[in-house]
């Protein structure tokens, strides 16, 4: 069973003491898809980084499966990301010199030897499921933006994480590609019972998700459910 994600009393300050994030409580039930919206600089990405353990908060707890991610060391946070969180970035962050499958199965490089083949097979399966069947060997450099982001999603899903954290996954795509990817992400999360938390400026994508948070000045000012 996928655990809930719970944030309590989290505070993040900038180096100059400016408050970047102040969340008293945020609970994301397992399997829920959440859109995090707000103006630029509002603290959306900071929230995502805190949830993923990329940015340990200055105060507070981020609880996942009974563990406080914020209290773990770097190795512990990396292990959580490796096993439980799939990350998707706005500008893909793919390795241009690797093939589509090489990128999607990137985690195989640091997976235990016995798990590598299965991980590569799963990555190939995700590529196919995301509409990139037959493109395994294709160089990422020759892929379109939409294809690249799908490869990035396949990479995030290759380890079958229960949580997907996406930072503006559709922002670099044209309207059609953004709509298609948004629909796929929402559907994938729903079908497999994954938790999806996506920072987005795209109302159309946000509308596809179960819940919408609006953040301003690091605080949640609006929280709406379908």
């Amino acid at each position: 069973m996928v655990p809930d994600l719970l944030v309590t009393g989290v505070r993040v300050w900038s180096g100059r003491g400016r408050g970047l994030l102040a969340l008293d409580r945020l609970a994301v039930p397992a399997g829920q898809s959440v859109a995090v919206m707000g103006a630029s600089g509002a603290g959306k990405s900071t929230l995502l980084y805190v949830l993923s353990g990329l940015l340990p908060p200055d105060e507070g707890q981020v609880l996942w499966a009974g563990q406080d991610i914020a209290a773990l060391n770097e190795a512990g946070r990396a292990a959580i990301r490796r096993h439980s969180f799939g990350l998707v970035f706005q500008d893909y962050h793919l390795f241009e010199e690797l093939s589509a499958l090489g990128n999607a199965a990137l985690a195989a490089a640091f997976a235990p030897r016995a798990a590598r083949a299965a991980l590569v097979a799963r990555a190939g399966g995700w590529l196919a499921r995301l509409g990139l069947a037959g493109l395994d060997a294709r160089s990422v450099a020759s892929c379109s933006g939409g294809e690249r982001q799908r490869i990035a999603v396949a990479r995030a899903l290759a380890c079958e994480p229960p949580v997907i954290l996406a930072d503006e996954p559709t922002a670099s795509l044209d309207r059609a590609a953004a709509d298609a990817l948004g629909a796929d992400l929402a559907q994938l999360a729903r079908a497999d019972g994954r938790t999806l938390i996506a920072v987005t400026h795209d109302p159309a994508f946000a509308a596809r998700l179960d819940r919408r948070l609006v953040i301003a000045d690091g605080r949640i000012i609006e929280d709406s459910h379908d």
Binding site: L54, A78, A79, F89, A107
Partner: peptide, 16 residues
């Protein structure tokens, strides 16, 4: 550095 940061972000162990 950026490529390495991506690896760390997706959970690659420091040793890797």
């Amino acid at each position: 550095a950026r490529s390495l940061a991506v690896l760390r972000a997706i959970g690659a162990p420091g040793r890797f």
